[in-house]
Computed example of a mutant assay.
Amino acid sequence: MSDGQRAVTITEVAARAGVSISTASKALNRRGQLRNETRERVFAAADELGYQPNALARSLVQRRSYTVGLLSTESADRFNIPLHLGLENALGAGRVSVFLCDGRADPERERFYLESLLSRRVDGIVVTGVRTDARPPLADVPLPVPVVYAYSRSADPGDLSVLPDDEQGGRLAAEHLLAAGRRTFAHVTGPTEYAAVRDRLTGFRAALAEAGVALPDARVRCGPWREEFGRAATAELLAARPEVDAVFCGNDLLARGALDTLRESGRRVPEDVGVVGFDNWGVLAEGARPPLTSVDMDLQGLGELAARRLLSLIEGNRESGLVHHPCRLEVRASGGGPAVR
């Protein structure tokens, strides 16, 4: 604000939103039981008028700093970018600032950043990762602020972890391929030590079993998350079972490799073989030949959910355990419609 500008008051915000001053105060300070539409109307009025609350006064009155620590395993990872965007969207809507710290999967760096965030009196901490496997909790003793793990699972069942629903994602892939008339399935995926690999296969197999279709181990290939493994594994599967008419891949890199091998072997996708990937990595999925149908974990939505759960914990609610955020299927050409016979 320049010297010549007058500060907007909460009275003006209340008048613009058509509510009382006390209701405007509750909405802006995230207190009280208000309807979502009322709270959103107050925030919209505050934005239109350029209202800037006195953060110091607000924090002294409510004993909150209105800041949150975001402790990332790898902040530049392609999975963390949409996740962090969702977190910041939801926290920003609540007028909460974010301190981003990149632990780089180093326990010493993580401890240093934890101490730094606590010294800044953050209201809570979100821990993000790049795997859904269990990891040690941030500390061996209870922390003075709530913590939520997002796309990262704490080994302590008393913590709250928000994860993509990988089993449901596997089910989506199976249901799409079944609806296209496929009957002989194969699966190319990553290393079995990843929880996501096991969960996606569990969901995929369960949906097939409900349709009376089996997926024997002989038609499952596990290996590195790399395109070249997708090519080699698909070649092995076709040599052993040339009648395969559907391939579900554990990520989009593997699916791109599978598409290469199918094309080189003379199989038409999707006319002869349907292919579904996982992650919906736009640059890969959209540029594939043909464009790749892929399961999307909705990481931005997952980040928003984790932020809302953290704000709820900060407000005094209690929650622990696992929360699974549903995946969705981005349908393109590779999965096909009814199979051509």
Rank of each mutant, 00 (worst) to 15 (best):
P146G: 06
E88I: 10
D217M: 08
R289D: 12
L56Q: 15
L178S: 11
R39F: 12
S161V: 00
V122T: 15
E243Y: 08
L87D: 09
P338D: 10
A206T: 06
P191T: 14
R256E: 03
D102H: 00
G170L: 10
V276T: 04
G301M: 00
D159L: 10
L85D: 15
G129Q: 00
S119V: 04
G335D: 00
H187C: 11
G69W: 00
E110I: 02
S119K: 12
Y151L: 06
V244P: 05
D217K: 09
G158L: 09
A90P: 05
V148E: 03
S265I: 02
H84P: 01
V188P: 01
E271K: 09
A306H: 05
V126N: 06
A105S: 05
R219M: 10
V19C: 03
I125N: 14
R30W: 15
E210A: 09
L117Y: 07
P137D: 06
L160A: 03
G169L: 08
R58G: 11
R39S: 14
R328Y: 06
G94H: 13
A211D: 08
L292Y: 01
G223V: 08
R31V: 12
G277M: 03
L28T: 08
N317H: 15
G277C: 04
P270C: 04
V197S: 02
T192K: 09
G92C: 13
D166L: 05
R263V: 07
A258W: 05
S320I: 13
S294E: 01
E315L: 12
E228M: 07
L253Q: 03
I125T: 11
R6S: 13
T73Q: 12
G158E: 11
F248R: 05
R120P: 14
E286M: 04
H84I: 05
A76G: 04
L311H: 08
R267C: 04
L100A: 10
V295R: 01
G4K: 10
P146W: 14
G223R: 11
I125C: 14
I10C: 13
F278A: 01
P142A: 14
F99A: 14
A105Y: 03
R63T: 15
H324C: 09
L254T: 01
R120I: 12
Y151V: 01
